[in-house]
Each structure stands twice: as C-alpha cells, then as structure tokens.
C-alpha cells in the first residue's frame, strides 16, 4: 500500500517537473519575467506598467518586473542576450539607445542577439523654452543662438534628445549643449532658468507642458497633445528623432511563441480606451511589428554613427 502511494506520489511529482517542457502550445504557463533597462521611475517602465493589467487579461499570466539599470540599457540587453529563449524572459528596451550602444560598442552584443517583438510607443523629441522666454519660435531660437552663447539642455548623453541637438548643431546653429541625468533634471533646469532651451521627449514631459513653450517637434507629423507646434520638417529642418519603446526577447525565440506575443500585443493595443490612456501619459501608441522595428534600428545606425562622430570631434575641440 505504502509503496503504491509512493509510486503515485513520485509519478505525480515527476509529471510536474516534466510537464512544462512537453508542450508550449499553451504559452505562457507561468509568470513572464520583464527586464527593464531603466529605473522604476522611467518611461521604459511606465510603458509596460500601462498595459500590465491588459497583459494579464490577454495572456492569463502576470509580468514580473526586474530592473537592470545601467550603461544606457546595456546591462539589461546583456542579461537578455544570456537568457533562455523560451518566451519567459522579455525586455522593455529603447532605440536609439540600442543603436548607439551598438555603434560605440559599449554593449557586449550584436543586433542579431535579440528577437524584436514589437514597437509599442514612440515619443518624439521636441525643443522647448520657458513659458516667459522672449524666444517664440524656432526662428527666434536660431537668431538668439547665432548672436550669442545659448545654452541648450538635453536629457541624456547620446540619447534621442542629444542626437537631435547634435543634428541641429551640425546644421550650423551654434549653441552649447549640456546633458542632464534624466528627464526630471533636464525639465527642472529648463524651468529654473539654468538652461536657455532644452530638447525633451514628449512622454515624460507631458505633465509639465503647461510650464513651457514648445518650439518645434522632431517628428513627421504634429503631436495631438500640442497641435499648434510645427514640426522641424515644416520649418525646413530635416530633423526626426524619437524614442522608440519596444518589446524584445533573446534570439531564436520559438516562432509560435513570437507569433503569440505579437498577436497578443496587437490585441492589447487595438483597444481604443488603452490608446487614449497611453496618449494621456504622453506615450502615444505607435505600433510596429518585429521586422519593421528591426529595420528601423538598422536604418537609424548610419545617421547616428555620423552624429556620434560629430559629437566626439566637438568634445575634442572643447578641450
């Protein structure tokens, strides 16, 4: 009798151990780890938190957040690269950080070390001044820049705002650039008058928009949150820079898991209410499937490497 019970118990235990590997038809069967490359206070976290509830409804499993901050997302990407490609390790990542880490070789990975699942949001860069600034348009800004020492703030070093600033600088508008460690610090510096203007991204700046005057948006079309603000393109400057937020996984993700994730995310982001909530948070939904996303990263590399080169020569010239 005892032996029988033991056998039954043993086989039950065994089936628990073996079962998950037998089929992954019902992916996901357990909580999914979400690696976030920036802090719990950043946009990379927020963009996932906004759909945390929906993810659980869609997939029947919760997300478990793991923060791996550092090296402009490089730490997180390295962790993803070294994880098992079973769909239980996903990451919230950003471009141009991905591309610039590839160019500067500060990350220990290649473009092909990852499966790009989908881009879900895109925050364009914009140039802004304080509400009470005498500068009222991009023209005023350029006039002020050419006539004297204008100080322009950026959010982070070799991030999207820094690239936009470098690009306008390269087009011949002279100003001094200063990078701050993160959005809140850059916004405080702008509102406090410690910089004359700042390149910011729409997402995390939305809540203090009423305190500033946006001059131009580095996007192909205007933003519904600031419909009166022209794009750089409209004003004759070919500047398009944005922060693309996407989901990725280690390379060689099983095709059925990848398809399930893409389909699930598509379902989640179809919801009008959710899109509205994201827009309110400044993280406007801009859905791109994996291959398109990967292509956009590849395409961005050429321009970014020339901007990085330009940034390095500027740095050398200042010494």
């Amino acid at each position: 009798m005892l032996r029988k019970t033991l056998v039954v118990l043993m086989s039950m235990a065994l089936s628990f151990i073996v079962a998950p590997t037998v089929s992954n038809a019902a992916y996901p069967e357990r909580p999914v780890k979400m690696i976030v490359g920036w802090g719990a206070d950043g946009g990379a976290d927020l963009v996932i938190r906004l759909v945390e509830k929906e993810f659980q409804q869609e997939f029947g499993q919760p997300l478990v957040f793991v923060y791996k901050t550092g090296a402009n997302g490089g730490i997180a990407a390295t962790e993803v690269k070294d994880s098992k490609a079973d769909g239980y390790t996903l990451a919230s990542h950003c471009n141009p950080h991905m591309a610039s880490n590839l160019i500067t070789k500060k990350g220990r990975y290649n473009l092909d070390d990852f499966t790009y699942i989908a881009q879900t949001a895109k925050d364009p860069v914009f140039l802004a001044v304080r509400k009470d600034s005498p500068i009222n348009s991009l023209d005023d800004f350029i006039k002020a820049a050419t006539s004297g020492n204008l100080l322009v703030g950026c959010i982070d070093f070799y991030g999207p705002t820094n690239f936009a600033a470098l690009k306008l600088h390269k087009m011949g508008v002279p100003y001094v650039m200063s990078s701050f460690g993160g959005g809140p610090k850059a916004i405080s510096a702008l509102l406090g008058g410690h910089v004359d203007a700042a390149f910011l991204i729409t997402g995390t700046s939305m809540s203090s928009l009423s305190e500033m005057k946006p001059l131009a948006l580095a996007s192909e079309k205007r933003d519904p949150n600031m419909p009166d603000v022209p794009t750089f393109k409209e004003l004759g400057y070919d500047i398009e820079n944005s922060l693309s937020r996407f989901w990725m996984a280690p390379r060689d993700l099983p095709a059925d898991v990848e398809a399930r994730l893409l389909q699930g995310l598509t379902n989640i982001y179809k919801d009008e209410g959710l899109r509205e909530r994201c827009a309110k948070a400044g993280l406007a939904v801009d859905f791109l499937s994996g291959p398109e996303l990967k292509k956009s990263i590849v395409d961005s590399q050429a321009e970014l490497s020339s901007l990085i080169e330009y940034g390095e020569t500027l740095k050398k010239a200042n010494q």
Partner: peptide
C-alpha cells in the same frame, strides 16, 4: 510642476497615469 522630486514620486506618477490622471 509635474516633475518628480524623487524616484519614489516618479513611481507615483506612474500610478497616476495608469489611472488616467495627468500629474502636474
């Protein structure tokens, strides 16, 4: 101003946004 004074305040902004309220 809508700027978080600490990382903790920033997480609270996340909570507000998830509720559909824009801080600031």
């Amino acid at each position: 101003l809508g700027i978080p004074g600490s990382a903790s305040a920033a997480v609270m902004i996340g909570g507000l946004l998830a509720q559909g309220i824009a801080p600031g």
